[in-house]
Deep mutational scan, measured.
Amino acid sequence: MGFKLLSKLLVYLTASIMAIASPLAFSVDSSGEYPTVSEIPVGEVRLYQIADGVWSHIATQSFDGAVYPSNGLIVRDGDELLLIDTAWGAKNTAALLAEIEKQIGLPVTRAVSTHFHDDRVGGVDVLRAAGVATYASPSTRRLAEVEGNEIPTHSLEGLSSSGDAVRFGPVELFYPGAAHSTDNLIVYVPSASVLYGGCAIYELSRTSAGNVADADLAEWPTSIERIQQHYPEAQFVIPGHGLPGGLDLLKHTTNVVKAHTNRSVVE
């Protein structure tokens, strides 16, 4: 069995187990497998329904001669939608809004960016022009300005110390501490036991640490421990890039980060 097929099978099995364990909360999309990078042309966006009122959005972007996937989250909030992270750029984010209108038909009224990198804030200006209120932590807003990236308009308070959590509509926002970046936030959907790890969490097929220019490698494993301790009931975990899975993604990420750190020390 090929690795790609095995990865998709694991996603399907995880979703099936969740649907059985929580039949009222989960209505997993039966329309197909989780979209992969090879299936999404740059400039297009796919939506994948995880649970009743919960979707991931998947886009792709060219970077350094390669094409990478990027995940975000959409959560229903009454007759409105909360968006977590842009679709990595203005063109993708405009396509995301169009796809949401086509498939869901509810307005996106608020959006949260989970850290300051372009795959999370690139497209904020498109959201703002569409009347979406954009939010991020003060740290993310400051770092985005320093980096020359787009800056969300509103500040999220109460997320300055490791372990801080605040309720934001249908989700809980959690600051686990520094990891992929010093400002990275985690998003949890309690009604569906869905954990969105953003770039602080890796997919299972990833074996290298990737972009760690703004990471705190020493603190990252401790931050992941905080996530595990705060959300032990999480059933569906979405990484910032690639295929979702279960809580095993947290341990896998820790292993990859520690291996990278150990290699760096040896070198």
Results as ranks from 00 to 15, higher is better:
V187M: 01
K251C: 15
A111D: 11
A66K: 06
G53E: 09
I100P: 00
T36G: 06
K91L: 10
A51P: 04
D85T: 00
R141C: 10
E219V: 08
D183I: 00
R128K: 10
I58K: 10
L83P: 00
T261P: 05
I84K: 00
L127V: 14
G43M: 14
A95V: 10
G210Q: 13
T207N: 15
E145D: 01
P35V: 09
L82D: 11
S27F: 10
L173D: 02
Q235P: 07
S139M: 06
I74D: 04
I74W: 01
D64H: 14
A179K: 06
Y135R: 06
G131F: 00
V265M: 15
G148H: 02
S70T: 04
Y34I: 07
G158A: 12
S155I: 00
I84D: 00
T140M: 15
L106R: 10
E44Y: 05
T134R: 02
T261Y: 14
L143H: 14
R110I: 04
E172R: 11
S193E: 07
A59E: 04
I50V: 06
D64K: 10
A192H: 14
A165M: 12
R120P: 02
E33K: 09
T207I: 15
K251E: 06
V54F: 15
G65R: 09
V67S: 04
L10N: 03
E99S: 12
I201G: 05
D77Y: 09
T134W: 13
H252W: 06
L250F: 11
A94W: 12
G158D: 15
A218C: 07
A25H: 15
G177T: 01
A94T: 12
A234Y: 15
S16M: 05
V42P: 08
I227H: 03
I151H: 00
Q235R: 13
L73A: 04
G2H: 15
A215L: 09
V171M: 15
P170D: 04
G65A: 04
A98G: 09
G158Y: 01
Y135L: 15
L217I: 03
F116Q: 11
Y135N: 15
D183R: 00
T86C: 14
D79S: 14
E233C: 06
N149V: 10
G53M: 07
L9I: 14
L73W: 00
I84T: 10
N255W: 08
A234Q: 10
R142F: 01
I227K: 01
G177V: 03
P244Q: 09
L127S: 09
L159P: 09
P221I: 12
R263W: 04
L24V: 08
V45S: 04
C199A: 02
G169Q: 05
S208T: 08
V54D: 03
A90S: 11
G2P: 05
V166Q: 07
N184M: 07
T14I: 09
A21N: 04
D77P: 02
D164A: 10
S16E: 11
S113W: 01
A98W: 06
Y175P: 04
T14F: 14
H154G: 05
V112A: 05
I74R: 01
A215T: 13
N262P: 11
A213P: 12
D118H: 08
T153G: 05
V42A: 06
S38K: 10
T140A: 04
A59D: 11
S22A: 09
E157C: 06
K4C: 04
Q228K: 02
L217G: 09
N149H: 00
A218Y: 10
Q235E: 15
V108D: 00
A21K: 11
T261F: 12
L81M: 12
A200F: 13
V108G: 06
L82M: 14
I58M: 11
V146F: 08
V112T: 04
G158F: 04
A25F: 15
D248A: 04
G72Y: 01
T153L: 01
T93G: 04
E145S: 15
L185S: 13
I238D: 04
I186S: 11
L81T: 11
Y48F: 04
I100N: 00
A259H: 07
T207E: 14
V124C: 03
A179Q: 02
A87L: 00
Q235S: 07
N149L: 14
S56M: 01
A95P: 05
K8I: 02
I151M: 05
A259M: 01
Y68R: 05
I20L: 03
L250H: 04
L195F: 01
T93F: 00
G78K: 15
S223G: 11
R76M: 11
A200L: 15
S161M: 13
Y175M: 13
R142C: 02
L185G: 02
A111G: 07
Q228R: 09
R226C: 14
I40T: 05
K91C: 07
A133R: 13
D118Y: 05
L10H: 11
L195C: 08
I186M: 04
L81K: 00
P152G: 14
Q103F: 00
Q49S: 06
H154L: 08
S7L: 06
G148S: 01
D77S: 02
L159F: 07
F63D: 03
L10M: 15
R263A: 07
A21M: 05
Y202V: 08
H230F: 15
T207C: 11
L10E: 07
D52R: 06
I186A: 11
A129P: 01
P176S: 08
H154R: 10
G72F: 00
A111W: 03
G169A: 13
H260M: 05
L159H: 13
P221L: 12
L250S: 07
S191M: 05
D118W: 12
I238S: 11
I151K: 15
G122Q: 03
V126R: 13
L173I: 00
S38R: 09
Q61I: 08
N184R: 01
S264E: 03
T182Y: 02
P170Y: 13
V265C: 08
S161P: 10
R226P: 06
V132A: 12
T254G: 07
P138A: 01
A130Q: 01
A136Q: 02
E225Y: 00
G65P: 02
P239M: 03
L5I: 15
L47S: 09
P35Q: 15
S113K: 00
A215P: 12
S70H: 02
A111N: 06
G122C: 01
S264C: 09
L159M: 04
L127A: 13
S161E: 11
A136T: 08
I227N: 01
A129V: 14
I104L: 07
I100K: 00
H57N: 13
R128G: 11
R142Y: 08
A178G: 10
D183C: 01
V42N: 11
V37M: 06
L173P: 00
D85C: 00
K4M: 06
S22F: 01
N211S: 08
S38W: 08
G245S: 11
H241K: 03
R206C: 11
R46Y: 02
S155C: 15
P244S: 11
T182N: 05
E39F: 01
G242P: 04
V42C: 06
S191R: 09
A19R: 03
N92D: 09
I100W: 00
H154N: 14
S7F: 13
S56D: 13
Q229G: 10
L6S: 10
Y48L: 05
V266S: 07
L247E: 14
G240H: 15
L247K: 10
V132G: 10
E44L: 09
V146Y: 06
V212C: 08
S31L: 11
S62M: 02
V187P: 02
E147F: 13
L83V: 11
I100C: 09
A234C: 01
R46V: 06
G197K: 03
P239G: 12
V237Y: 12
L6F: 04
A209P: 14
S181I: 02
D125P: 12
P244T: 12
G169Y: 09
H115A: 00
N92T: 14
A111K: 00
V121L: 02
S264V: 10
P35H: 09
A178W: 10
Y34T: 09
P170F: 01
P190T: 10
S16K: 04
V108N: 00
Y12S: 03
G43K: 13
R263T: 00
V266E: 06
R167I: 02
D79W: 14
L173V: 12
D64S: 05
T109I: 13
E150R: 15
S16L: 08
D164H: 05
F63M: 05
V112R: 00
V171I: 13
E39M: 07
F63N: 14
S161C: 09
L13E: 11
E101N: 06
E267G: 07
D77F: 04
I186K: 00
P107L: 04
G198Q: 05
G240V: 02
K102L: 10
A19T: 08
V112E: 00
Q103W: 09
A94G: 13
R167M: 03
P176K: 02
E44N: 03
P107T: 05
E80L: 14
